[in-house]
């Protein structure tokens, strides 16, 4: 199996590569169109800021490529936010796969939301073998709003938000499966089995 991890200006991409390595899967970090198109699975990791990430993706036309892909695709953290319509982070138009807004947490509690939080309202093959006692690791200040059609798991912090999204071949997760211990490994394995 060939797994392509999209290379762009996002931080800590290595963690995703190492997590794949631990699962015994060979993943390639690449921004090459052909390699990404041919891959069996594509992972779109992320940690960073939305507007500079979008600018980088547009300059290299990776934004167009992402919308054309047909194989299972997994956006992680900022990767989830960039798949949405719009982010309040520097007023950024994103990729628009999910018709969902990304908003900043209101300052009603500590922000960023850092640490382990559980998944609720789970539905999707990606979460097979897991239930609401599954905790994943989060580090983020912005969240995707709930959408009855596309939200496949929720988490509560300050308010309920979309912990995971799904539409066609596109899957996305706000937490970091690559840092979420056994739960994260299950999710990544489920994705690889799609």
């Amino acid at each position: 199996m060939e797994v392509a991890v999209i290379k762009y200006n996002a931080g800590n991409v290595k963690s995703v590569l190492y997590a794949m390595e631990r699962l015994g899967v060979n993943a390639t970090l690449t921004d090459d169109w052909e390699t990404i198109k041919k891959a069996d699975k594509v992972i779109f990791p992320g940690q960073g800021e939305a507007s500079t990430a979008m600018k980088y993706l547009k300059e290299r036309k990776i934004d167009k490529l992402i919308k054309e892909l047909k194989q299972p695709f997994f956006g992680i953290c900022l990767g989830l936010q960039l798949l949405c319509d719009y982010s309040e982070e520097y007023d950024t138009q994103c990729l628009g796969i999910f018709p969902i807004k990304v908003k900043k947490f209101p300052p009603l509690n500590k922000v960023p939301h850092i640490g382990w939080n559980n998944l609720e309202n789970l539905k999707t093959p990606l979460l097979e073998g897991l239930d609401e006692s599954a905790y994943v690791y989060y580090v983020h200040s912005y969240y995707a709003e709930l959408n009855p059609k596309y939200t496949i798991a929720t988490t509560h912090y300050i308010n309920d938000f979309s912990a995971m999204l799904h539409k066609d071949n596109y899957y996305a997760m706000q937490g970091h499966p690559e840092k979420s211990s056994v739960v994260g490994e299950k999710i990544l394995n489920n994705f690889l089995k799609l």
Binding site: K14, S15, R22, Y137, K179, S180, S181, V182
Partner: peptide, 8 residues
């Protein structure tokens, strides 16, 4: 450590 450990 990053290669081995699956938590932050």
């Amino acid at each position: 450590v990053a290669k081995t450990v699956n938590i932050p």
